[in-house]
């Protein structure tokens, strides 16, 4: 199966500033995590998203685009900040990988992929 790991984190939450040694260490953890997914045969795709103030939301209703507004879909403290698309035999494996992700503080939603046209 394929699962999407969807990160919801607070952009103003704790985290080291770029250029500091702590930041190097922080990035190192993410690189190691990516490597683990690749070597484990789990990697399909992944991305870290630009902050929510760069987001634009398009609304559709009744099969038509009805509006375009500045900002992310849901205004909450946590925002959709990145995702992984992974292969895993079952939910337990996907959950174990999600629990290992080096997110400092936040939520990781795990959702099965129903259909992917390029797969």
């Amino acid at each position: 199966m394929e699962y999407m790991l969807i990160n919801h984190t607070d952009p103003n939450g704790p985290g080291p500033a770029p250029g500091t040694p702590e930041f190097e260490e922080f990035m190192g953890r993410w690189m190691a995590y990516n490597q683990k997914l690749i070597e484990g045969g789990h990697w399909v795709a992944g991305a870290s998203l630009a902050p929510p103030d760069t987001a634009t939301t398009v609304e559709r209703a009744n099969m038509e685009a009805v509006g375009t507004v500045d900002g992310p879909y849901a205004e909450t403290k946590e925002v959709f900040s990145g995702f992984y698309l992974i292969k895993a035999d079952n939910l337990d494996i996907a959950l174990a990988l999600a629990k290992d992700m080096p997110v400092d503080t936040g939520f990781i939603e795990v959702r099965p992929v129903a259909f992917r046209p390029d797969a």
């Binding site: 199966m1 895993a88 035999d89 079952n90 939910l91 337990d92 996907a94 174990a96 099965p112």
Partner: peptide, 11 residues
Amino acid sequence: RDAGIPMSMPT
């Protein structure tokens, strides 16, 4: 079924 919850021994 849809989320692929396995009937396996949990870790």
